[in-house]
């Protein structure tokens, strides 16, 4: 062992997809089509959110139908901090708001992580369809809470007027903001890769396939899954904060079950458990929405059709088609 492993086809596919996103944004900028920069930004953010889910769903086999909760919590963390900074009104406990992105991201990480500890500790005691239903139920509870919370816009949501700032970067321009999102996506993918190949990742993937065996080896599947679930939620939470800065708006729809479903679709479409799966899924999804959405209201029908084909004929999703089956050392 120890000899350098040949670069896998999957690594090449992953790198190509990542660079294609960057190149797409740069070319769009150079040709003055900033709308496409925004489209690329949307892809990066959704890919980051779905990469978070991919940790739990792809590596751990945890079909969370409630990840919109974390996306939305990250979103509301951003919205609430920003609006308080904007009005100058202190929040609970007299804390000030902030419009500094890194601080907002930290808040999104902590908030989504804490909620994930609670949701995970309860839902991970179940499995299969019960797990799906319980995660959905928790997300719905948070959704209805947001709707009935007038201080932050209730059903109408909350506008934050100006995009938050990042030291030394003009975030109001599309390209710098894209680059921030792209950097976070790259960091998220790097982290996913590390975890996948680490001891923790080995335990997590083994627990997906054979929890009885994992327990017989002295490891506790529940705790391993809980840690994975929390990490997964935190990544999706940060993506939620970016999404609010992209749209300058947060509303309960970020917490909706449709959003949870959309995240699952991104992962499955791109390739469950594959490094670049969520990126491929998000790119396909956003481009589909853009290209077909202009022509027909029923673009989701065609998306469903593609999803059906993927599930029936290409279990590895887009990345599976491009890079072949996943290898496990």
């Amino acid at each position: 062992m120890g000899a350098s492993m040949p670069v896998s086809r999957e690594a090449v596919v992953s790198l190509t997809l990542i660079l294609a996103l960057l190149a797409g944004a740069l070319i769009a900028q150079a040709s003055g089509e900033t709308f496409y920069v925004t489209l690329a930004t949307r892809i990066a953010i959704l890919a980051l959110a779905a990469t978070g889910l991919n940790l739990a769903l792809g590596l751990g086999g945890l079909v969370s139908f409630g990840h919109a909760a974390f996306f939305g919590i990250g979103g509301y963390a951003c919205g609430i901090l920003a609006i308080h900074a904007y009005n100058g009104e202190p929040m609970i406990l007299g804390l000030p708001g902030t419009q500094t992105m890194p601080v907002i991201w930290l808040a999104a990480l902590v908030a989504s992580g804490l909620v994930a500890v609670a949701i995970g500790a309860l839902s991970l005691r179940t499995s299969g369809v019960y797990f799906i239903m319980i995660t959905l139920a928790f997300a719905q509870m948070i959704y209805y809470f947001a709707i009935s919370w007038p201080a932050y816009g209730g059903e109408d949501g909350l506008s934050i007027f100006v995009r938050d700032n990042f030291p030394g970067v003009n975030t109001l321009k599309p390209l710098p903001f894209f680059l921030i999102c792209f950097a976070l996506l790259a960091a998220g993918l790097f982290f996913f890769g590390l975890v996948r190949d680490s001891r923790f990742g080995a335990a997590l993937q083994a627990a997906r396939q054979n929890p009885v065996r994992v327990a017989a080896l002295g490891m506790a599947p529940f705790r391993i899954r809980l840690v994975a679930f929390v990490l997964s939620a935190m990544m999706t939470g940060v993506a939620g904060a970016l999404y609010v800065d992209l749209n300058r708006f947060v509303s309960p729809s970020m917490l909706s079950w449709q959003m949870s479903g959309e995240l699952i679709v991104l992962v499955v479409l791109g390739g469950t458990g594959r490094l670049a799966g969520p990126l491929a899924g998000a790119a396909l999804y956003v481009l589909f929405e853009f290209l077909l959405g202009g022509m027909t209201e029923r673009w989701q029908f065609f998306l469903g059709l593609i999803l059906l084909l993927v599930v029936l004929f290409a279990r590895g999703g887009v990345v599976g088609l491009l890079a072949g089956r996943a290898r496990h050392g």
Binding site: L194, D197, A203, G329
Partner: peptide, 9 residues
């Protein structure tokens, strides 16, 4: 099992 960085291989 709670090590996240090093590649097991």
């Amino acid at each position: 099992s709670y090590r996240f960085i090093r590649n097991v291989m």
